[in-house]
Design a protein around this nucleic acid. Structure first.
Lengths: 115, 115
DNA sequence: TTGACATATTCCCATATGGGTATGTATTGT
DNA sequence: ACAATACATACCCATATGGGAATATGTCAA
């Protein structure tokens, strides 16, 4: 089996840096493809393909206006990612404490960490 | 060019569902590989490979204890993901308002959304 | 209708993947 | 030293990728 499709979920879709750039750019306001191409210095077909992926997982909304396609980030689709990362919040807090404790204990004990 | 390596950053590493499962599992406490294999019902080589990716991007810490390798989630490495998703928080709040406004306006205006 | 403009899609290709299977490596107990 | 245990890595392979170039589709303007 190969890697999961980029369109399988939001996690796979945002793995691509350019797609995150696009989401950032489209968060503030609606933009048409040409603007994305110009602002992010990407090739037009490339942008269209990235937008296709983002559309497929619901990370952007589209609307046609004449010849232009207006895209906008659907922030709500990012919420699940936010929730998932949030579940680790309590752990990195604990880890901060552990680092302190370890620093204090390091005067008497020897660290054998390799990582 | 192909897709970026799974080891290129945390975003790519967590795109794989099983790796997220592993991170969830290892968040509460240190576990050795055999426990992950048994609990998540995955093949041992598969787990080792996933752990390798997670290690490479710093999402887990390892420590040897005899024949066993003890892994633990490094929650701190998840923070950047949390921060990125957090930047969209204000937008999904705005969107909730917009949905309301649109609902009220829908009595007079016609929606032309296709998505 | 025809041409111009804005996007989307198709095709080709080098590359990284994840699963399965087999094998390598490190550590312990005898 | 040797067998057993616990992981890690190598190998094979079907598959999805993202970039570039070319082409198709859709819309407006004359």
């Amino acid at each position: 089996m190969a890697r999961a499709a980029t369109t399988s979920d939001a996690f796979n879709a945002i793995a691509e840096p350019r797609r995150r750039d696009i989401l950032n750019y489209l968060a503030f306001q609606e933009r048409h493809v040409g603007e994305i191409v110009a602002s992010l210095h990407l090739a037009q077909p490339s942008v269209s393909k990235h937008l296709r992926v983002l559309r497929d997982v619901g990370l952007v909304h589209v609307r046609r206006e004449g010849r232009q396609m207006l895209y906008r980030t659907n922030a709500d689709a990012i919420r699940p990612l936010h929730e998932w990362t949030k579940t680790f919040e309590r752990f990195w807090r604990h880890q901060l404490l552990r680092v302190k404790e370890r620093a204090e204990a390091s005067t008497t004990q020897l660290d054998k960490n390799k990582d």
